[in-house]
């Protein structure tokens, strides 16, 4: 026998289930009067620096059917690549958003600004990106992925995370596609052809 390591195990995950909206977006689910508003619905203050963008899309299952009971959260840096809470961050960029998929169409939508390049641990820049976390009934452990911007080709080519992906053929699954009006389309495929890359961070 050896001495015991003084560490705990992470609590095991359980699915968010079909009623995650009761807990995380009660006003959206029709439970009003408990919280003033749902957290994460507003991502910007009055005068954020940077280009305004909308990120929209759907979460699709292995049959191609959109999930109408999923919930997404995103997290991103400000236009200078600084995260909220770090020194010098833009106080009007909250960086965090939460959105349930529409109960009919299955679409989600985030209105925010385009983040700048964030430095990797070794000081090299990562291409601008948004980190996403997806939970729903049937998802046993919340899924982490990233949305990069398809119109940042040079930065994407140099991105240290994208470069380490063995099956480069899958990299386009991480690209938000510009629609020309500041909207980026980002469909997330849980399974099947074009399955989105998820990360084990």
């Amino acid at each position: 026998m050896v001495q015991k390591l003084d560490t705990l195990k992470e609590s095991p995950s359980q699915t968010a289930g079909p009623y995650v909206h009761i807990g995380l977006t009660p006003n959206f689910s029709g439970i009003t009067g408990v919280y003033e508003s749902d957290l994460g619905t507003t991502m910007l203050g009055d005068a954020p620096k940077g280009e305004r963008i909308t990120i929209t899309g759907r979460v699709l299952d292995g049959t191609g059917t959109p999930l109408r009971d999923a919930l997404l959260e995103i997290w991103h840096a400000d236009a200078s690549g600084i995260y909220p809470g770090q020194d010098g961050a833009d106080a009007d960029v909250y960086g965090w958003g939460r959105c349930p998929t529409d109960m009919d169409s299955g679409t989600f939508r985030f209105d925010t600004i385009k983040p700048g390049a964030v430095k990797n641990r070794d000081g090299t820049p990562m291409a601008p990106h948004v980190t996403l976390w997806i939970v729903a009934r049937g998802i046993n452990l919340g899924l982490h992925t990233r949305m990069y911007f398809a119109d940042e080709e040079a930065a994407n080519d140099a991105d240290p995370v994208l470069k380490r992906i063995e099956h480069q053929v899958r990299v386009p699954t991480l690209m938000g596609q510009p629609q020309g009006d500041g909207t980026y389309l980002f469909d997330i495929h849980l399974q099947g052809p074009g399955e989105t890359i998820f990360f084990d961070i």
């Binding site: 699915t15 299952d61 292995g62 049959t63 059917t65 999930l67 997290w75 991103h76 840096a77 995260y83 964030v118 430095k119 990797n120 641990r121 990562m126 990106h129 980190t131 729903a136 009934r137 049937g138 998802i139 046993n140 899924l143 982490h144 990233r146 995370v161 380490r164 992906i165 899958r170 849980l190 399974q191 099947g192 399955e195 989105t196 890359i197 998820f198 990360f199 084990d200 961070i201």
Partner: peptide
């Protein structure tokens, strides 16, 4: 419900960055 909502590919391992 997990059958059609589970990724089939292994998640790609990476050390966490400032973004996480």
């Amino acid at each position: 419900t997990s059958v059609k909502r589970s990724p089939a590919a292994a998640p790609i391992a990476m050390p966490s960055t400032l973004s996480e």
